[in-house]
Nucleic acid binder design. Structure first.
Length: 422
RNA sequence: GUGGGUAUAGCUCAGUUGGUUAGAGUGCCAGAUUGUGGCUCUGGAGGUCGUGGGUUCGAGUCUCACUAUCCACCCCA
């Protein structure tokens, strides 16, 4: 048997976990400030939820889901995103009867069976928020501003916000007819995928990367120019709201997100630097989803943010995430009695919330201190029989090399003080 | 799912037209006279050369398959 992590998965090692803790805390703090409450949803759901919630015609459902039967014969799927499960929880727990809007956030893993590339994994992490119950553009603006703030606080530059509106079922339906008519005479000139799109989901043709399709579609009408009154007003409200907060945006008529549930607002944050996997975050409004999944008609809005891509971008922009500090104190020992004494001493010190280490490898004094240096201890002390007898140690500042003598009983207080002073 | 590149020590990489026992730097461990880290010096451990077949007297090197990874598509976070 070959020992390796499954394709498309990876370990996050102790060496880099602090970066994850940092962005997770940053996101949580922002969500708290915005009044979003954390929700934890299952890693897997019944397959039907995603077929319905994400949409049967989507690539995600058609070819990217991790689906299997459990021992009871139920079809189970590992969540490919967070919105469907959150909507399910919203309905199942009767959140409709709580004061609205309902504002939720989550930090989850998501699973998609994809061909590997950098920044694209089969297991990846997403931060997400969902807001239920408000249909006006002010909630769109709020949700987008969470991301704007997150990027700002991280110090990220060159992240572009692209927005679009894909209308509501009413105006989109009308538009699709118009669009089909427009293409009817020349659809045979399009690429193969576009010809199937023409039947099933013509809007995706706008998104095609083939040069000839791009040209053919260049003069086609756009959804954005064919919105109904309400949708147009909503989009205008979104633009004004973003301007009000000083958030820059581009209008990209070609954004058609990968989930079927979107209505009106769709948006994405794209990095200018990171190659093809530049989409750091995508989201939008889904006013029909709750009802479609069996709840009462409830508008919603949310996003999913790729954490691996976010960290990749911070790295490539040279942003330094602060490393955690090293251990407060290393107690080196000479002799057996001192070793036992140190076992107890670190126990006491640790109970005070101060990090302390001692030897477990049977190392020489010199090697113990060498180790203390490697793990970046702030202070070290050597304990032998004399120190125990006199209740005094010499505490060495490992950065400056300065040494001070003090009573062992005073250690904790000293280290606590040193900590609060920075 | 389509097309292409790469795979040698924990990490970054050398390795000639196929030819003895596969190297370096870094990291790890130990030592440089008794109880003091960082610098320096010395030594040591660590590799089924991604895996499995094939060609050959002989394969890290050539060939095929598989696996992983990276790049371009598709699509997405």
């Amino acid at each position: 048997m070959k020992l390796q992590a499954p394709k498309g998965t990876k370990d996050i090692l102790p060496d880099e976990i602090y970066k994850w803790h940092y962005v997770e805390k940053l996101f949580r703090d922002i969500c708290n400030a915005y009044g979003y409450k954390e929700i934890r949803i299952p890693v897997f759901e019944y397959t039907e939820l995603f077929q319905r919630g994400v949409g049967d015609s989507t690539d995600i459902v058609q070819k990217e889901m991790y689906t299997f039967n459990d021992k009871g014969g139920r079809s189970i799927t590992l969540r490919p995103e967070g919105t469907a499960g959150t909507v399910r929880a919203y309905i199942e727990h009767g959140m409709a009867s709580l004061p609205h809007p309902i504002k939720l956030f989550y930090e989850i893993t998501a699973y998609r069976y994809e061909k590997m590339q950098k920044g694209r994994y089969r297991e990846h992490n997403q931060f997400g928020v969902e807001i239920f119950g408000s249909k006006g553009p002010s909630s769109d603006v709020e949700v987008i501003s969470i991301l704007d703030l997150l990027f700002k606080k991280l110090g990220l530059k060159d992240i572009e916000l692209n927005i679009n509106s894909i209308g509501c079922p009413a105006c989109r339906g009308k538009f699709i007819e118009k669009f089909r008519q427009h293409l009817e005479s020349k659809i045979h000139m399009f690429c193969e995928t576009c010809r199937t799109r023409y039947e099933r989901n013509p809007l995706r043709i706008l998104d095609c990367k083939e040069e000839k399709c791009k040209e053919l579609v260049a003069d086609a009408p756009s959804v954005l120019d064919n919105l109904c009154g309400e949708c147009r007003e909503h989009f205008e409200g979104l633009k004004k709201g973003l301007e009000n907060l000083g958030i820059n945006y581009n209008i990209d008529k070609n954004i058609v997100r990968g989930q079927d549930y979107y209505t009106k607002t769709v948006f994405e944050f794209v990095s200018k630097n990171v190659g093809t996997q530049g989409t750091i975050c995508g989201g939008g409004r889904y006013d029909g989803l709750v009802e479609y999944c069996g709840g009462s008609p409830t508008p919603g809005m949310g996003f999913g943010l790729g954490v691996e891509r976010l960290l990749m971008e911070t790295e490539s922009q040279g942003i330094v995430i602060p490393r955690p500090e090293g251990t407060d104190l290393y107690i080196a020992t000479v002799g057996d009695i001192a070793d036992k004494f140190a076992d107890k001493l670190v126990y006491i010190i640790r109970a005070e919330g101060i990090s302390a280490e001692k030897d477990h490898m049977g190392r020489s004094l010199k090697a113990q201190l060498k180790y203390a240096d490697k793990i970046e201890c702030k202070y070290s002390a050597v304990i032998g029989e004399n120190e125990i007898k006199n209740n005094k140690i010499i505490l060495r500042n490992m950065k400056t090399g300065e040494q001070t003598e003090m009573k062992i009983d005073c250690l904790v207080e000293f280290l606590k003080g040193g900590r609060s002073n920075g």
